[in-house]
Design a protein around this nucleic acid. Sequence first.
DNA 1: ATAAATATGTTGTCCGACAATCCTAATATG
DNA 2: CATATTAGGATTGTCGGACAACATATTTAT
Lengths: 244, 244
Amino acid sequence: MKMAHKFKTLDRAPVYVKVCNAIEADILSGVLKEGALLPTEAELCVQFGVTRSSVREGIRLLQQSGLVERGAAKRLVVKSPKTIEIAEAASRSMALGGATFGEVFETLAMLYPEAARLAARRLSSEALDALCAVRDGLRDAPPDAADEIVDYAVEFFQQLASGLDNRVMLAMLQSLNLMIGASLQLVIDQTPNAHERILNAQSEIIEALKNHDEARAHAWMTKHIEDLRRGYVVAKVNLDARIL
Amino acid sequence: MKMAHKFKTLDRAPVYVKVCNAIEADILSGVLKEGALLPTEAELCVQFGVTRSSVREGIRLLQQSGLVERGAAKRLVVKSPKTIEIAEAASRSMALGGATFGEVFETLAMLYPEAARLAARRLSSEALDALCAVRDGLRDAPPDAADEIVDYAVEFFQQLASGLDNRVMLAMLQSLNLMIGASLQLVIDQTPNAHERILNAQSEIIEALKNHDEARAHAWMTKHIEDLRRGYVVAKVNLDARIL
DNA sequence: ATAAATATGTTGTCCGACAATCCTAATATG
DNA sequence: CATATTAGGATTGTCGGACAACATATTTAT
């Protein structure tokens, strides 16, 4: 008995999706390396055999996923997503998805102490210097300049994360930074002694990192974050409220 | 002396970007709630006063960020991003950004033991039942069916993460799952006793969760992940290689 | 009343056109 | 000769209109 031939289901995706996929495939497979120039729109039209409208819609799709970007001369250049951009996209999506302060803080409280522990194990001396620079900046800042204090507090987290030399971790920590960064502003200028307390925590953490004292780094980071969290409670921010 | 008037810098973004931003703003501000139907393209044209090409390009931008989707009758409906989609986007970007197995595993080894500890503190009984179901499924699976074992191993992580009731954490854990999921396949069928070892780890973790024994949950999760990591070494997977 | 046929609306794709912008190269000027 | 200017060409952004494909709503026929 002869089996009737089975056809594969036809690919009925819109053309602009196919354009997006085709380009993306070549990027992913390495045919198009980072920084490579894509053909012009007109060129893509003839290569794919579709009209410019479709090509352009496909490009928008690629553009939003950060794989491609307009460079000099407006030409499209291939770009491999940087951790900060991944973090931005993720935190933006979380905000839109309705994540709350409580969720962010709980995650922060879980991740950063462990990050500090890892840092105590392997932070380079340059990374440590960067942390010291942040701490010194904070020390010299006027104790009532809330915005500056916030900047230094976030920057401390940022530098610590960067020093871990792990892009996956970095992206996650950065996205947490972004999610609280904006709101920290509202809190800190209502917290008494914020300047002093944060400065102290940073100093203790740095000291622990210097001595490769993992437990102490972990403990102080925990304390530091708990301190920040208390700020939200004092400022009467509802932890179930959506992040901005 | 009269000060010359200062003009704000003009907004010179392309129209399609403005279209995207305008719609996004209304979604974010709550004017457009989840599930709401967007006007048709023709309608948007007259409302924004631009041509359909521009509207369509703007829609592609929104579409890729997961804020909008074609529903029944092809109409555009507003959609708030789900954690799994955020995780997918993030892991995809990380893969394109060149993240390595080593980075993923290190992050996994940091996050999941802490997640297990948290789970021991507050996992609901339903979530625990779900974990048991996974464990039972794995127990009854043939010990040489590598793909099934992988599925159950990943599913165990998935259920644990879901039970934490924290979307931010969930998104991060899920994105880690996705990043190793694909590659675990290659490893497990080269690992002797994988079935038995994974089953044992799952059972121990479940036992610890039941007894709210945070330390033990943490310890066994650590052991479990280290075991998986060893699989990569045995299978001679280069930990500096890019994830798929 | 149900099924078939038709009408209507919406999206996907095409085409052609033009202004704004940027790059390149030729030209003018010191 | 080097630099500034200008002209030219290439490319993107935006427009308008057109039509086929498809899904829904409405009417007609059985």
